[in-house]
């Protein structure tokens, strides 16, 4: 069964008296354990699409199934619950909690969102911090580490809940290319090791060159599907 299955997904925004069709009847599927990117110019609808898949917004019409659940009409609480249990998020600006240490940032979803026993929590956090190579920085605060390090912490935070799907909106936009490749590498490794699916929205060539499937969006419609050279690490 597909991890994501979208049928005739349409999203219309109302801006004042203007109706803006951000997505026009988009259909696609994403299989488990894949590395997918939506590309396209600004305004093409890729962030809107990611928001719909990420359960942060509701489609105007069409059906959307993620991890076996119909998420096209969840309430606020149900949506929060669904995100906390099934999804991981990586943001362009990292969005770590400034008042929490690296360790606590990764711990946050396990404590506040899910409820994981202390011993298991510690084990998961330490092993993930080790994987993203941030173990030695675990007691630092976000403003004491670099952008690449922050994004690695964010990856760990997205994965610590055992999410089956991680959504990343422009995750490398604020990183230099060397750091960007390193972060992409880590995500790829996670995908291979944990079978997690990563869905990006980006126009960063570095990511595009690393993914398995590239969907091109233009004016709210999927206008192309291409295979990337993403199998490289396998």
């Amino acid at each position: 069964m597909s991890l994501i299955s979208a049928q005739d997904l349409t999203k219309v925004y109302t801006l004042g008296e203007l109706q803006v069709e951000a997505l026009k009847s988009v259909s696609f599927t994403v299989e488990p354990s894949s590395f997918v990117s939506f590309v396209g110019p600004s305004g093409s609808g890729k962030t809107t699409l990611l928001n719909l898949v990420g359960c942060l917004d509701r489609p105007t019409s069409g059906s959307l199934t993620v991890a076996g659940a119909d998420i096209s009409s969840l309430s606020r609480r149900e949506a929060a619950d669904f995100r906390g249990k099934n999804l991981g998020f990586i943001f362009q600006d990292f969005n770590l909690m400034p008042v929490l240490t690296v360790y606590e940032n990764v711990e946050y979803p396990l404590l506040v969102v899910q409820n994981v026993a202390a011993a298991e929590r510690k084990e998961r956090i330490l092993s993930l911090l080790d994987t993203v190579d941030m173990l030695d920085q675990k007691d630092k605060y976000p403003d004491q580490i670099s952008g690449g390090q922050k994004q690695r912490v964010a990856v760990a935070r997205a994965l610590v809940t055992n999410a089956s799907l991680v959504l990343a909106d422009e995750p490398t936009a604020n990183l230099d290319s060397k750091t960007a490749f390193m972060v992409i590498d880590i995500m790829h490794k996670m995908k291979d090791e944990l079978g997690v699916t990563f869905v990006f929205s980006t126009h960063d060539r570095k990511i595009v060159s690393e993914v398995e499937t590239i969907y091109t969006l233009t004016d709210g419609m999927i206008t192309g599907k291409a295979a990337g050279k993403g199998g490289r690490h396998v």
Partner: peptide
């Protein structure tokens, strides 16, 4: 606001 957005996005319930 952005911090609140992040907390909400990663699944923190409104009540919390």
């Amino acid at each position: 606001i952005r911090e609140i957005g992040t907390m909400a996005a990663i699944g923190t319930k409104p009540g919390k």
